[in-house]
Design a protein around this nucleic acid. Structure first.
Length: 712
DNA sequence: TATGCGCTTTTTTTT
DNA sequence: AAAGCGCATA
């Protein structure tokens, strides 16, 4: 039986699966069968009787990954999924906090704030403290609070340096108080609270350490400081931690992920088993060659070289368009050709660095009648109509939820204006109670009647839905609240109505596999905002950012917008660390392709309403020319030589131009025609690099080239 | 309370 | 170019 589990694994994979119960770090390259190893490891542990399902804790970052892991496990062994602790960091912390809410200092029915809710909660704090939100924008307070929570720092521990730090500390402090008073918890709080629960409660900690003999972590390179600290508390002297990650695919440092955790893990736990999974089963060899070459330009790596025994495959196709429209036209044409050749549409992806780039592509695909699907954007549970509906549910479950009350007290409008809400908040502040309590006690003058009716409405919703199955609760709430009527009356409300209907369906689906409580459903909504997509996937090509593509693979991939300033993004170009992250992003992008990879760029592009000119991405220049095939003439990989220089010599600040030329400027040359200035060095006696439409990119001596500016 | 105009601001994103 | 936001007006 054990043999059958590892039968189809390569020696490294099998070794990883069958490691003894000791700490291990698996460095798993892109497409090397990481998830397979993780799930097989668990199945092996269970089937050899080393551990019972209750003794396993497996952590992932996304619900999708958790679901996939569970699905693959149950395919290998029949299991009751309820006994297993497989989930996201947040999901597992939520589970633990619900079980020990008293020890954690939380009400049994605590609500979870998503980022939007958190932001509005912070706005209330700013208002309460009379803080100038020009100088202290809610967004930056949110960033500050989350940053500190992820570093495990409470407001009380903050040092005051100046006025700014004093205000930030005050905001954080009041925000903590407010959340505690209202019984709500934000995402970072789920982790921090759970960390503190275990840290401050030795017997509980010992209990879980005893219980979880095997702690398995997926995408370990993406863990932040707090997540790692939480793991350290859970892993006891008799537990083994099995961490799988790829430092080369760490693309979330910008939001707090700490790749250094991989290194720290080896040191903190004296890890004896480090296994590298370097054989790639996904891509043809030329694609891997490109990926390896690019990533090898990074300095800080744990070191790993992907290889494959598959054939070379095609060369990577490079297309340089004159404009973003030109690039788009090319992409659309190739997509159509691929589909004609029988590549399934959903096995084709168009990737880009930033969401704004999707617009042109969407337009092109739409015009050409190619079915496509854009990933990202607004998620189901984040839509305003859904948030409104959830707020009513939250009020039914716990009326003291001020955030929820504020959201819907006047939606649909019922004559409770900003003034009334202000008075309500002021009275609540004075009395030190919730808005709901104040609303119940009346005494609000002219608008008191409207508030009274709202209180009644919530009461009626609660009594009428008492004890009913969740989908019915949702349906009744939608009617009584007036949400359905409101969107029915709205000429543009059709989609929203449909989504509200979908919410009832979601509730039905939820009780089919989980509990029948409103609170559980609300947690589900906060923690799995993304999973519930309203429109099912048909056979359509996929458009998404490179970030969103992580973990996915496609037969053919179009990597678009390979220009300096776009990819790498301009905000990352001055910081070497950020630049390395961009390069890892490039590595992730390249390794998404199984068979065919297109690399495309445009000489000019509409960006922020302006036409911008940028030279080709340095990353393109880091790919060995032998694996590239330039589809349109004239654009040999000159960018390579510039970027090679840039990569290997410390970047020197450019001297101020004395010749009046600037990067992006269109110029005319007597022999080479029209081109765009892409670089220069030295002053009037120096050189200038011009990318000519007809003759490609050239370095010319400024003094002799006699370039003339062309206005456009 | 709703609407519309002019102003600003543009990475990446899960939970 | 487009979307979000604050403020003024109907």
């Amino acid at each position: 039986m054990n043999a059958s589990l590892t039968a189809n694994l390569n020696p490294q994979q099998a070794a990883a699966v069958e490691l003894p119960a000791e700490h291990a770090l698996i460095l798993a390259g892109a497409g090397s069968g990481k998830t397979r190893v993780l799930t097989t490891r668990m199945a092996w542990l269970l089937s050899t009787g080393q551990v019972s399902p209750a003794g396993i804790l497996a952590v992932t970052f996304t619900n999708k990954a958790a679901k996939e892991m569970l699905a693959r496990m149950t395919a290998m062994l029949p299991l009751n999924p309820r006994g297993l602790w497989i989930g996201t960091f947040h999901g597992l912390c939520n589970r633990m906090l619900r079980l020990h809410h008293r020890d954690a200092g939380l009400p049994e029915q605590f609500a979870i704030l998503d980022s939007q809710d958190q932001l509005s909660a912070i706005k209330r704090v700013l208002k309460l403290l009379n803080i100038d939100d020009e100088r202290y924008p809610a967004k930056s307070c949110q960033h500050f609070i989350n940053g500190n929570k992820e570093a495990g720092i409470r407001s009380a521990a903050l040092q005051i340096w100046d006025e700014h730090s004093r205000v930030m500390k005050a905001v954080y402090e009041e925000y903590e108080r407010q959340c505690q008073r209202e019984g709500v918890v934000d995402f970072a709080e789920l982790l921090l609270r759970c960390y503190e629960l275990l840290n401050g409660n030795a017997s509980l900690r010992a209990h879980y350490q005893q219980r979880f003999r095997h702690v398995l972590v997926d995408e370990f390179q993406d863990t932040n400081t707090l997540q790692y600290a939480w793991l350290k508390l859970l892993v006891g002297p008799e537990s083994a931690m099995f961490a799988v990650g790829d430092d080369d695919q760490s693309i979330y440092a910008f939001r707090g992920a700490n790749v250094g955790n991989m290194h720290d893990f080896q040191r903190d736990f004296a890890v004896k088993h480090v296994i590298r999974l370097e054989q790639n089963y996904r891509s043809h060899s030329n694609i891997l060659t490109a990926a390896n070459a690019v990533i090898s330009c990074n300095r800080n790596r744990l070191g790993k070289q992907l290889w494959t025994d598959s054939e070379d495959g095609e060369l990577l196709r490079v297309f340089e368009g004159l404009s973003d429209f030109d690039e788009c036209e090319f992409v659309v044409g190739e997509v159509q050709a691929l589909i004609r050749d029988g590549v399934p549409a959903n096995d084709i992806a168009i990737l880009y660095r930033s969401n704004a780039q999707s617009r042109v592509l969407e337009h092109g695909l739409f015009t050409a009648g190619v079915p496509y699907r854009v990933y990202g954007g607004l998620r189901f549970f984040e839509r305003q109509e859904i948030k409104h509906a959830l707020a009513y549910l939250r009020l039914i479950a716990s009326p003291e939820d001020d955030n929820a009350l504020l959201r819907v007290i006047n939606f649909p409008t019922r004559g409770i204006g900003a003034r009334t809400v202000d008075t309500l908040q002021e009275n609540a502040r004075l009395a030190g109670t919730s808005l709901w309590q104040v609303a119940c006690s009346g005494g609000l003058g002219r608008s008191g009647a409207a508030v009274g009716k709202f209180v009644q409405l919530v009461e009626v919703m609660r009594t009428q839905t008492q004890g009913l199955p969740l989908p019915e609760v949702v349906a009744i709430m939608l009617e009584l609240s007036g949400l359905t009527a409101h969107y029915r009356a709205d000429k543009d409300g059709e989609d929203r109505l449909e989504n509200l209907g979908e919410l009832v369906t979601a509730a039905a689906a939820f009780i089919a596999e989980d509990e029948n409580t409103i609170v559980a459903f609300l947690s589900h909504a906060s923690l799995e905002a993304g999973d519930h997509q309203a429109n099912a996937q048909q056979d359509a090509i996929q458009l998404m950012t490179v970030h969103a593509a992580k973990g996915l693979e496609f037969h053919s991939v179009f990597l678009t917008g390979l220009e300096e300033g776009l990819f790498p993004h301009e905000n990352s170009m001055s910081d070497p660390k950020a630049l390395e992250e961009e390069r890892r992003l490039m590595y992730v992008a390249i390794t998404r392709a199984r068979r065919r990879l297109y690399l495309s760029l445009a000489q000019s592009r509409m960006l922020h309403g302006q036409t911008r000119y940028a030279p080709g991405s340095r990353f393109l220049g880091e790919i060995p020319p032998e694996v590239l095939r330039y589809l349109n003439r004239g654009y040999a990989p000159q960018t390579a030589y510039i970027s090679k220089q840039e990569t290997h010599t410390p970047s020197t600040p450019k001297a101020a131009p004395e010749h009046g030329l600037a990067i992006g400027m269109t110029v005319q040359h007597h022999r080479f025609g029209v081109g765009v200035v892409t670089d220069y060095e030295g002053g009037a006696n120096g050189n200038v690099q011009v990318n000519f439409a007809e003759h490609g990119s050239k370095w010319l001596a400024v003094a002799y080239a006699k370039l003339q500016a062309v206005s456009n």
